[in-house]
Design a protein around this nucleic acid. Sequence first.
DNA 1: AATAATATTTAGGTAGTCCTAAATATTAAA
DNA 2: TTTAATATTTAGGACTACCTAAATATTATT
Lengths: 206, 206
Amino acid sequence: MSMAIEDYLKAIYLIGRSDRAVSTSSLAERLMISPASVTEMVKKLAGKRLVRHAPYRGVTLTEKGRRMALSTLRNHRLIELFLHRVLGLSWDKVHNEAERWEHVISPEVIDLIDRHLGHPSVDPHGAPIPTADGLIEYGNCLPLSDIQPKSRVEIVRVRERDPELLRYLEKLHLVPGNKFELISFEPYGGPVTLKYKGKKISLGLE
Amino acid sequence: MSMAIEDYLKAIYLIGRSDRAVSTSSLAERLMISPASVTEMVKKLAGKRLVRHAPYRGVTLTEKGRRMALSTLRNHRLIELFLHRVLGLSWDKVHNEAERWEHVISPEVIDLIDRHLGHPSVDPHGAPIPTADGLIEYGNCLPLSDIQPKSRVEIVRVRERDPELLRYLEKLHLVPGNKFELISFEPYGGPVTLKYKGKKISLGLE
DNA sequence: AATAATATTTAGGTAGTCCTAAATATTAAA
DNA sequence: TTTAATATTTAGGACTACCTAAATATTATT
């Protein structure tokens, strides 16, 4: 399977979480490819029985497509962790690097990486790593915006991918594993205030 | 630069050792691409000032082309060593894996790999690793066939790439670093006899 | 229910990298 | 030196994955 196909399947999985139908335009936006090209590729994927496509109604992964998507996602996340833990690549850079590696690493080497890391369950952003046989376990956590003020929280996962933003969050200690106290939400999209080791932190609602 | 271009430049370097003119057909054979396609691509490379091409007379790398070839070769050999030493991938498999990785790893990560390995000078087959600024130092060694019987020899480099052959050579301890006594050459392409730690070994002249 | 706005698909192209078959150059042999 | 063998290039295609512009479907609004 080509790198392009792997990218499409992974994107469909990530947008639709394996079950929901995914629109052409959301795929186009995520992959930064024109909607027309996406339609074309989706038809090819349907021909290969990797997705189901009802014209004008979006795409869903077939079982075969889902397996492939999870395999690529597994590669991606194991590679991110490997780059971070073994080679010391900073957490804002691992995503883009893994985005290319994920397509060229053989299953045998992925297994070696998995073993070298001790069969980890999450990547450096706290995202769960699918197992070799396509299982994925989502930790139960809530978006910060759904949490009541005054609670103590532990960062479990950071969904952003923009390197600049990730560097900023790291400076504020907003990385998986760290614990905060949620002080307040300002209304009308105002800033959130958190406390980490006695220090107060404010941030906008991205 | 595309993966295909990187492969062509690397092959031109490896066949011509950076200076000799390389024929279309030797490139075609090494890359397993039809001669016609090679001619076409060579014209494109000449347009990008990566090679000089005199029709019917072969190609040579320009300085720019040589730099790119050595950069890809450096990636390839650092990756081979990394796969072998860090992940424990067997020496017969590292070449094919590195053949794909070499095109997707960023310069920053290659530097991290280089540092992690302690700035090594040779890959698992004993081939020299070019430096980041395009220098490459060939150890002085001779092909086994040029050595006088009765000498003691150390294997410095193994040029083969075929996995099955590499596994065979490893079983015979014919890997870089090991020392042998060269017993005899049988004439007319007959077998070579070596002694390793008291045990005799015979092999054909591949 | 008709119309406007938005989303999606179709039509027609392009660039990159490969192919086979035919034509042409070079080199080796008679 | 003419001919035969071999190497290289040209011509014409194919396939993948992208594009823009135009056509068509869906959905939201009046």
